[in-house]
Design a protein around this nucleic acid. Structure first.
Lengths: 343, 343
DNA sequence: GTGAAAGCGCTAACAA
DNA sequence: TTGTTAGCGCTTTCAC
């Protein structure tokens, strides 16, 4: 049981050969006699020796190319699709993808970034967490150290490649549609604090209200969250004390929240879309599999991943400075059965 | 635009200082004069120099500890929860997690394994792909090289740590339950080829049939797949030509397939559970959010991740050989509204 | 403040 | 078949 990590030297010493020989058996050169090989192998086993990948790598530039991808939540099909897109494009271009999840921890975002850089990935795609006291130092650090970077959620105050959508316009479109259907009493179930997209979507709802001369009350933006349960709880709480004065339509931060809302409405005896219309965001796969298929704003999830990857690998291979670029992808309102004119 | 990757030497040469000085500015020692610092920084920028993380690492063993996790599909909430469990346990123990997805590509599994080893993770958790011509060489390679390993799907013929459940028993329990309800005509919508769990679940169904003296016809195991769409398509195809002779109950490889089946049944005008009972597998979160909440076999998803991680880090820190261990976790049949006695 | 030199763990000639 | 040695790109003394 070695206290310190064994090195190739320890193995050489223990097996009574030179480090060159140990290296030879490590690399399966056929040049080692079976007897020596055995002794070396035994020593390796006894010392529980692990060749240091770091040291091996340098001379052997065979190491596969790879990009790091940092996303927010593992439990959200939205990100699953983004990841899929990244992997898809990366594979086409001959790169592997290593994924890290920050799970709302800003600290984790910093450390995962450092880790991936230390692991020598060729570039990084990050979906940054956002909040008031966001410290972008790790992102600047990255730029400083010349690691190619693409952000997949816009952030102000940093020069970097970005791929994003226009959430404000997308949310406005959703509200426009509901107003067009005749709705006047619309409530928005908003996303989490750390989400820039959530902020933008709320802003879009706000602007649509103004455009249609609707008044937005205190309670018209509910702080829900990003998960099924968040939507469910928020809706249960919201409708508990609103017997008479109900909205006729609800827009949600994302589809997960919408599905949670749907469940709450069902349990409260409210029919969708007859009593209440519901609109989601993202268009995750399951949205069209519900018994009342969900009207939602489709995010080009895979395309976001693909484009980000292409930009990233582009600047990896340019090997020189490339001016940061911002790509804005299209969203699309997908109308299904969860919306209808108010009764 | 340098053709070759610049090294610290190039930076030193261009800025007219020694490599020691460059190293000092790289590491923010306060010992460099502002003028020199500027020149070095300029050179770094001009050469687009990236310090080689590989070379840096060796002396500076500050690198955070990390484990690699290789799973099959990104688009499956089952894995999202496993990943969550891994991350959770890893964080508690002071490790980071890097995730790779193989997306049914056996080749990718091999290469991701190599990549993660090359990146010097402290240990590896793998959910291996399975099929006839599965070549386990990368797994042996890993053992050989003394990288701690935990498998989260049982595989024969390899000595390794494993965390798994008893799928055969779990599937039997599901069928037992349906038979207890009075069902005699049960069909199983099976999973993909590459899944060991799928095989085992089919085997469980088979054994339950035998135990209850039910005959299993040719068509009673439908080859569906692992996704929403797989379930949907398979069910549509299956029921198309079976107007009269319908099963009264369906068990599915997983919840995604079950949700797909549910949609197909709805579109075919069949009611659940009145006309057909449906049982899923996994108990992903959304299962209880459906308008007809899904009866399903709960997999201890997070716990699988947690236990695997604890075993892994245990053997990482034991630093010596530890005898491989196999942990079998419990499943549980969760009865909801998608099952009922046959009409 | 800066440079020279040793050494990290390993691979790859090249000798022996 | 095996040992010796020169690096790989970098950090870190320790002189100057």
């Amino acid at each position: 049981m070695p206290s310190k990590n064994a090195t190739i030297h320890d193995v050489a010493t223990l097996s009574g050969v030179s480090i060159g020989t140990v290296s030879a058996v490590l690399n399966r050169k056929g040049t080692v006699s079976e007897g020596t090989r055995r002794r070396v192998l035994d020593a390796i086993s006894e010392l529980h020796y692990r060749p240091s990948a770091a040291a091996r790598r340098r001379l052997q530039p065979t190491t596969a190319k790879s990009v790091g991808l940092i996303v927010k939540e593992v439990n959200n099909p939205y990100f699953a699709d983004v990841i899929f897109g990244v992997q898809d494009a990366a594979r086409e271009l001959g790169y592997h993808v290593l994924v890290g999840h920050t799970e709302r921890s800003y600290d984790l975002e910093q450390r995962l970034t450092e880790l991936l850089v230390a692991k020598d990935v060729d570039g990084l795609i990050i979906n940054p967490l956002l909040n008031e006291d966001t410290d972008l130092s790790h992102l600047f650090e990255i730029r400083w150290t010349n690691v190619p970077l693409v952000l997949i959620e816009s952030i102000r105050g940093i020069q970097a490649n970005m791929v994003d959508v226009d959430n404000v316009a997308a949310a406005m479109e959703a509200v426009d549609y509901l107003v067009g259907l005749g709705h006047r009493r619309i409530v928005h179930f908003g996303g989490p604090q750390y989400s820039g997209h959530s902020e933008e979507r709320i802003e879009g709802v706000r602007r649509a209200f103004i455009a249609h001369r609707l008044v937005m009350g205190e309670d018209d933006v509910v702080h829900a969250g990003a998960s099924l349960e968040d939507g469910y709880r928020a809706a249960l709480g919201y409708f508990r004390d609103r017997e008479g004065d109900r909205p006729t339509a609800i827009t949600c931060y994302n589809d997960l929240v919408a599905i949670g809302v749907l469940r709450a409405l069902r349990e409260l005896g409210l029919r969708v879309p007859e009593d209440v219309s519901v609109v989601g965001f993202d268009d995750i796969d399951v949205a069209s599999y519900l018994s009342v298929p969900l009207t939602t704003v489709r995010m080009p999830r895979r395309e976001i991943g693909r484009r980000a990857t292409q930009m990233l690998i582009g600047s990896v291979e340019a090997a020189g400075k490339v001016a940061p670029e911002k790509v804005v992808l299209e969203t699309e309102l997908v109308v299904r059965a969860s919306t209808a004119p108010p009764a």
